[in-house]
């Protein structure tokens, strides 16, 4: 799992690469949750995430809850069709705004 982040003005771009599952969930939680500052807009690029497990979906939801609690917003971009489908079927997708590209994700945030 690789996690990069870059903050431009009030948008933080987080770039995940690798599987999001029970093995990587804690790392993501430790690195990403602190980025959820008050009013922060977060763009999560998932283009390089091939697989998300149940634990992985929960990290995303945790992040969503923290960001919303601090009046921030989060947009997911580049979800694979399979991950998007899993999220839809399990109800997780209902919580998130999703876009196909970083560009359209930025537009959704602004």
């Amino acid at each position: 799992m690789k996690i990069n982040n870059l903050t431009i003005e009030e948008v933080t771009l987080i770039d995940l690469a690798g599987n999001v599952d029970a093995n990587t969930a804690l790392t993501i939680q430790e690195k990403v949750l602190p980025l959820a500052q008050t009013g922060r807009k977060i763009l999560m690029d998932m283009t390089k995430v091939p697989y998300m497990s149940s634990a992985g979906l929960r990290v995303l939801l945790l992040l969503y809850r923290q960001v919303s609690a601090k009046d921030g917003r989060i947009v997911l971009v580049g979800l694979s069709e399979e991950i998007q489908d899993t999220m839809s079927v399990t109800g997780f997708l209902d919580f998130f705004t999703t876009r196909e590209t970083i560009q359209s994700g930025l537009e959704a945030l602004n």
Binding site: S53, S54, L57, D85, T86, V89, T90, G91, F92
Partner: peptide, 20 residues
């Protein structure tokens, strides 16, 4: 009975159905 049974997420899928 879950599309996500292969991923072990039948619990979430069924709950999402009940909620909806």
């Amino acid at each position: 009975y879950a599309a996500t049974g292969k991923l072990g997420m039948q619990m979430d899928e069924f709950k999402a159905l009940v909620k909806t």
